[in-house]
């Protein structure tokens, strides 16, 4: 009963365009998944099917083991979508109160205003909010029903740095309460920070699905950098096993590797003429770029 979302061999075709292709995916309660992929990879369509906004062409989609369209399953979720503007002639507070009226056990209005940082704007007409504040209002609307699961589609687009920080803090405290998050984003730092599982989509299919650390390890690799002494043999360095790339700036050398442990052992045991060694983990961005480039070639 702890499966929140389940997709079984799901495909979605619009006219001649195949948006999602035999996707299978399951998500357990208490996890936070970031769905990544280049534009047009099928992320938004997948989310739309999970929410019951779009019917799959074939395959099965379940939300809380039931129909994603049912109102009872919607009582337990909160959603931020892209490109939504709120209706005119209601204040921020009224818009929040309206949403609270949709749910059986809503959170208090003042709490929602505070969480979204809109307490001072509560009397402003909601439609007049700036882009960043509008996103924050939608975050308040997503939390209005005290949901078990949050679906956030590009939540921080348009937010300034400070709002972003507050937003991430709020999402993290939401997750600490044992709740579930489904996130799509272009901001890889955001994905890395909030998700315990990264799902990468491309051309309508899942091409990677693992915790951020292992995705970074597997596809991002590591870099070992050091200052090279006069005796160093760059030709041999490039030929060492595990070395994928060598960059030099003056005496400063940066070596990219899939296995930094083995490389370091070699460098030290063979007493290479180097000093000031530093090891860096490859970022998620690195991994992402590699992954989607490889996926693109195989298509």
């Amino acid at each position: 009963m702890s499966t929140v979302i389940e997709m079984e061999n799901v495909s979605k075709v619009f006219g001649k365009k195949r948006a999602v292709h035999s996707m299978s995916f399951a998500m357990e309660r208490g996890h936070s998944v970031a769905l990544l992929g280049p534009n047009g990879a099928g992320k938004t369509t997948s989310i739309a099917m999970m929410l019951g906004l779009t019917k799959p062409t074939s395959g099965r989609v379940c939300l809380f083991s039931g129909d994603p369209k049912s109102a009872t399953s919607h009582e337990r979720i909160g959603v931020m979508l892209q490109e939504v503007s709120v209706p005119p002639r209601l204040s921020v507070r009224e818009t929040i109160d309206m949403f609270r009226g949709f749910y059986p056990k809503p959170l208090p209005t003042d709490r929602l205003l505070q969480v979204s940082g809109l307490t001072e704007d509560q009397k402003t007409m909601a439609q007049k909010l700036s882009g960043g504040k509008m996103r924050r209002l939608q975050f308040a609307l997503a939390l209005a029903g005290d949901p078990d699961v949050l679906f956030l589609d590009e939540p921080t687009v348009g937010m300034d740095v400070a709002s972003r920080r507050t937003f991430w803090d709020e999402v993290r405290s939401f997750l600490r309460a044992g709740k579930t998050l489904m996130l799509t984003t272009h901001d890889l730092q955001e994905a890395d920070m909030l998700a315990d599982r990264i799902v990468v989509m491309q051309n309508g299919a899942v091409i990677a699905d693992a915790p951020p650390e292992s995705i970074k390890m597997q596809f991002g690799g590591r870099t070992v950098s050091f200052v090279a002494g006069p005796d160093i043999d760059f030709e041999r360095l490039r030929m060492l096993p595990d070395v994928t790339d060598v960059q030099t700036v003056g005496r400063q050398v940066t070596v990219r590797t899939q296995n930094s442990d083995a490389l370091l052992k070699t460098l030290i045991l063979e007493a290479w003429d180097i000093r000031d060694i530093q090891v860096h983990g490859g970022g998620l961005e690195d991994a992402f770029v590699r992954l989607t480039a490889e996926g693109g070639e195989s298509q």
Partner: peptide, 21 residues
């Protein structure tokens, strides 16, 4: 028409307010 074009109707469909409601 305005509520459909602004994405509002679509957004409401993710809440307990059904299309019928």
């Amino acid at each position: 028409a305005a509520e459909r074009q602004s994405g509002w109707v679509r957004y409401l469909r993710t809440t307990p307010l059904s299309s019928f409601g």
